[in-house]
Amino acid sequence: MDYEVEILIVEDNMSDAEMTIRALKKNNLTNKLLHLKDGAEALDFIFARENYSDRKIENIPKVILLDLKMPKVNGIQVLQELKSDERTKKIPVVILTSSKEDPDIQECYCLGANSYVVKPVQFEMFVKVVSELGLYWMILNQPPK
């Protein structure tokens, strides 16, 4: 498996993941995309553990799109762990979630999230939001190092 990943999507909801990938594909941003379905696997990938132990931890993705509400290890826990480790804290993390609740937003920023975006219910809006996000983080934004 090629571990050169530029966009890491961590999302347990298959329909949201499909729509996100579709929107990115429209903008030709899916060459180096990886979709993982839960927080535990995401942490394994980020920290090069378990199934991903032959991966180099230094090869950080350009951006992580992280859902909050996931079974077992949720998005907040993933965020907390990767932002508290020197080797991974520089990875830009965009929280992409259904929750408009203020406490969630506050907590994510406090933990070091780089952006917080609420998934629109309307498909056209959803595609627009994900496209803009993809273009911004993959093309406009200058990644660390």
Partner: peptide, 17 residues
């Protein structure tokens, strides 16, 4: 309300796809 949003997004999304 929160959990109802996700499947709704899917209904809307798949119809649009």
């Amino acid at each position: 309300s929160h959990d109802l949003r996700a499947p709704l997004r899917a209904v809307n999304g798949y119809a649009e796809m």
